[in-house]
Design a protein around this nucleic acid. Structure first.
Lengths: 220, 220
DNA sequence: CAATGTATCAAACAAAAGTTTGTCAGAGGA
DNA sequence: TCCTCTGACAAACTTTTGTTTGATACATTG
């Protein structure tokens, strides 16, 4: 195991291998439950490598987050801009806005290539970490959700701002739960809800939330 | 600190104090992140007390769970039975079924007395613990959710079973997220969504989910 | 009163944790 | 060739972890 480590002359390889393993472990276990010894052992690198490359265990978590968070937010906002651009004036379809919010992460979730699927679960789990250092990291990430508020306001011109926030909240909830508890849905339904296609999940999610929001508009 | 510990002749007092502190700490931090030393220090009891009363740290978590989980499930199922009994034949109102599902925990969440509010967050967080010993504990708890399926079927006779599971899933998601991320809703809305009343949250949640489910029935 | 069992305590235990250190091999530049 | 810098390594470091151990005080029971 230790003899075949040095067969790769590439420099970045060790760093990326650590990030991949850490991403996977932090996705299924809490920060405190994962030890740097487990990560380095599974990655086949030296124990000191994490402190060498990332300064500390906390630095590693940050690096795992930052490696992909920017890309995900870019996808979301790009899709949002596309919807807004398609409707330059007047109302924007609610479906489109919601889709821009939930489709990119759901697609990542079902993406077998690279660690995209794992990252989504990592993201969902790490939001619950309580250490202030991490909270600040994820609160920065919340900022990009604020960009969806003007779009929602354009899709629902009659709804007061407070209502919009509640709609966003419930939508994020249904999405978030899909990240973390999809396995449980499969279990509780005795395998009936065995989902392989991202499109189907996105369609269900968007339809559910759009209807829930529409009820606020009409049934006031 | 240690001199005023023995002022209470009651036996159960130490046990309950440990449970209260552990419930609170496990609600805001992961299992691995909380040490028995932190718990016992905060509870003002001896370090060995946890192993004495609960056998192990894992046993303590189980005890925290079992202390209130039964009561919560009883409330839920009681409310469900009341709705079903009020409509002995024919269709059951969807609102009532959903309300039986989400109202008890949301009420607990806003209950200032005892540790009810903390327990709900404890419950939400611990569902993500990965150790098989705990997973089994919470999968038992999933069983009582299955009791809601016949009721949902009576409320939505035309919907296939798979659809019912999805509706249950999204509803649990919106509810669950309210448990864990209510603080974030307050933050992202700049305090506009400053909720104090359980009734309002329940009403919003039930309305949102009922409409989302109704869309599946009508817009097929 | 004597005996028993329970609850609490300080102390120690072994294991695991994150981090630091010093050394060595090798590539690249002067 | 010599020097320098980077990366990888084993080893040790200091805390902290969960758990166990006896000893002691006290209430209850015989």
């Amino acid at each position: 195991m230790s003899s075949q480590v040095s067969q790769n002359p590439r420099r970045e390889q060790v760093r990326d291998r650590i990030l991949d393993v850490a991403e996977r472990m932090f996705a299924s276990q809490s920060f405190a439950a994962v030890s740097v010894r487990h990560i380095t052992a599974e990655a086949g690198v030296n124990l000191a490598a994490i402190n060498y490359y990332f300064g500390s265990k906390a630095g590693l978590l940050k690096a795992v987050f930052l490696r992909r968070a920017t890309d995900l937010n870019r996808e979301r906002l790009g899709q949002l801009q596309a919807v807004l651009a398609a409707h330059p004036s007047g109302p924007v379809p609610l479906d489109g806005v919601l889709r821009a919010l939930v489709e990119p992460p759901i697609r990542w979730m079902f993406d077998p290539s690279r660690g995209h699927a794992v990252f989504i679960q990592f993201l969902a789990r790490c939001q619950l970490e309580d250490e202030p250092e991490f909270k600040a990291l994820f609160y920065e990430d919340v900022e990009h959700l604020r960009r969806f508020m003007p779009a929602l306001a354009r899709a629902l011109p009659t709804l007061p701002e407070t209502e919009l926030y509640w709609c966003l909240h419930f939508t994020l909830g249904a999405m978030h739960y899909t990240f973390t508890h999809l396995e449980r849905l499969r279990f509780i339904s005795n395998g009936m809800c065995d989902i392989q296609q991202a499109d189907e999940v996105v369609a269900r999610l968007v339809e559910f939330c759009a209807a829930g929001i529409a009820a606020r508009v009409g049934g006031r």
